[in-house]
Simulated scan of single mutants.
Amino acid sequence: MGVQDVLEHLQRLGLSGYEAKAYVALVAAGRPVNGYEVAKRSGVPRSTVYETLGKLVARGAAFELRGASDATDYLPLPPASLLDRMRREFDGSVAVLETALPAVVAEPEQHMIHNLKDGEAMLARAEDVVAGARRDLFLSVWPEETARLGARVHEAAGRGVDVSIMSFGSGADANGSGGALPGNVYEHRYSAPEAVLEDLGYRLIVVVGDRREAVVGGFGADGSAWGIYTADPAVALMAAEYVRQDIALQLLADRVGAAELDRLFATDPGLLRLLGRTPSNH
């Protein structure tokens, strides 16, 4: 991780851009330094460096050292202490907001459905759905997507969420450990994943939490992606039923055999009508 990554993460935790640069400069100096040297090391303008250092001192991320000549040098709060303080403040704010935010939330006039602009947005929203589940999770996923979601699914299973997964792959854990995904995992063999991919033209992802919110989308072979998030319980229920029916079909294929299912799909009038096909002459 480079300095730019460190600066970006410090800003995510509440420091301004100048504050992050000044703090990193103090840490990198390894000794007390004055404002002029902080400006030179950090790129913070000299016109604002003392204001920036004052803000770091006010938040406890730096300390002033006054010498005999009344010159002021600065020392940083050690990184471990700063991060521990930020963690405590963050956890404290979250604890307060868990009670305070629901009290000010108005009931939505309509259930939310919105588009997800790209694959990253879709996977981030899917992570939110998995992290928010408290009762059950239904997932229909491919290895490329479980690589991102696997750790969150493990966390959900660890807090007692009932997990059901239709896996278009071996069911290997997606988080890099090589172990098994948690919960009830069913490998999609009827039809084979490559046949499904050829038929659809994309990898379909369905993630449903507590049958009240869902992410549904697709990933194309060309890197394109489309998807939606919905908190409409009717749509979420339908998405969960899609996964449940796919699992049921796989269980049926395991029980009676793929050949028998193929025969039924080729000859049964009701199935043929649903599939938009005409009866075979054979």
Rank of each mutant, 00 (worst) to 15 (best):
A151C: 04
R263S: 08
R66T: 15
I113K: 14
D173E: 13
W142H: 13
Q245S: 15
M238A: 13
G209M: 06
S167C: 12
A221R: 13
R12P: 06
A225I: 03
S140N: 11
L65P: 02
A236H: 11
A61I: 02
G227Y: 04
E260I: 09
K21Q: 12
G67L: 06
L13E: 11
I247H: 00
Q245C: 12
V3K: 15
P78H: 02
G270W: 11
A174L: 14
E19W: 04
M86L: 15
A195G: 01
G132W: 01
Y74E: 03
P143A: 04
G176S: 05
R244P: 07
I113A: 08
A157Q: 07
A214C: 13
S170N: 09
M238S: 10
E198I: 03
E155K: 08
L7M: 08
Q11L: 03
F63H: 13
G119W: 10
G160V: 01
R125A: 06
P269L: 05
D118F: 00
L53F: 09
I113C: 05
L77C: 10
V256W: 10
A180R: 12
E51M: 08
R255K: 14
G220C: 09
L149F: 06
F90M: 07
G218P: 07
H188Y: 12
A248R: 08
L123C: 06
A25F: 02
G92K: 04
V161I: 00
E187K: 06
L116N: 07
E98Y: 13
R125H: 01
G67Y: 10
G217V: 04
Y242I: 14
G17P: 00
R255E: 14
R203K: 13
G30V: 01
A231D: 05
F63W: 06
D199W: 09
F168N: 15
T146G: 02
K117W: 12
D73N: 08
A151D: 15
L77S: 06
T230W: 08
I205R: 09
T146V: 12
N281C: 06
